[in-house]
């Protein structure tokens, strides 16, 4: 039998999964325009571009101009993926291996600092504040709380119930608020790459197509 906190977190994860799947199916049922114009470039090349070159700090002007924010965002996200990995890992291990402790703590601290920095930026930058709603602040805060309990668990060498309780809130909130971008972003990025790749605007090798395909 799983402890109550762990069982609850798995229940929340299941809810999260089903809710996201439901949303995805809902979106898939919306009307979709087929592209009938003959392509100039390759859609798949654009998708690969979107997931490789476009992610580099110099891949887009916006990331180059806002390099610190962009890198902070990358670290924050990588750190969150690591925390999720730890969550799944925690069901198989009663205690944290020493090999994970130092590196893991560093990754989580980096994520915490970057996430906190982004939160402060959102609070204190007027134009960003004008774009933000309670959901934006709360989403950041709940991820930070998740990273924090992960770090505390690593420090203590075991995964206490509060780790799972925070995970419950995290998973329950994920499909409801802006955190659902975790799913839709992947989709949107592929759509972006496919669209501009097909039109011959994005090219993996920097060679724009001059001919209709």
């Amino acid at each position: 039998m799983l402890p109550f906190s762990q069982a609850l977190s798995l229940g929340a994860l299941l809810f999260c999964f089903i809710a996201l799947l439901y949303m995805l199916l809902q979106v898939r049922h919306l009307p979709h325009q087929r592209n009938l114009a003959p392509p100039r470039g390759r859609g798949w090349e654009g998708v690969v571009y979107a997931y490789t070159k476009a992610l580099l700090p110099w891949g887009k002007e916006s990331s180059t101009r806002h390099l610190v924010s962009y890198l902070a965002g990358v670290v924050f996200h990588l750190s969150t993926f690591f925390a999720l990995f730890l969550f799944f890992f925690s069901f198989w291990l009663k205690s944290v291996p020493t090999s994970l402790k130092a590196g893991g703590s560093l990754a989580l601290w980096a994520g915490l600092l970057c996430g906190f920095g982004l939160l402060l930026k959102r609070i204190f930058t007027p134009y960003l504040r004008s774009l933000s709603y309670p959901d934006d602040y709360f989403s950041n805060a709940i991820v930070e709380a998740f990273l924090l309990v992960c770090w505390l668990s690593l420090r203590e060498g075991e995964f206490p119930p509060y780790f799972y309780f925070i995970a419950v809130i995290f998973f329950l909130y994920l499909p409801l608020g802006k955190l659902r971008h975790a799913l839709f972003c992947l989709y949107a990025r592929a759509v972006w790459g496919g669209f501009f790749g097909r039109r011959g605007v994005l090219s993996l090798w920097g060679v724009k197509r001059t001919e209709e395909r």
């Binding site: 962009y70 774009l131 971008h181 989709y187």
Partner: peptide, 12 residues
């Protein structure tokens, strides 16, 4: 629907 569900209001 995909796009509006993806905006994170990063302002970049």
């Amino acid at each position: 629907a995909i796009l509006v569900n993806s905006c994170v209001h990063c302002g970049l």
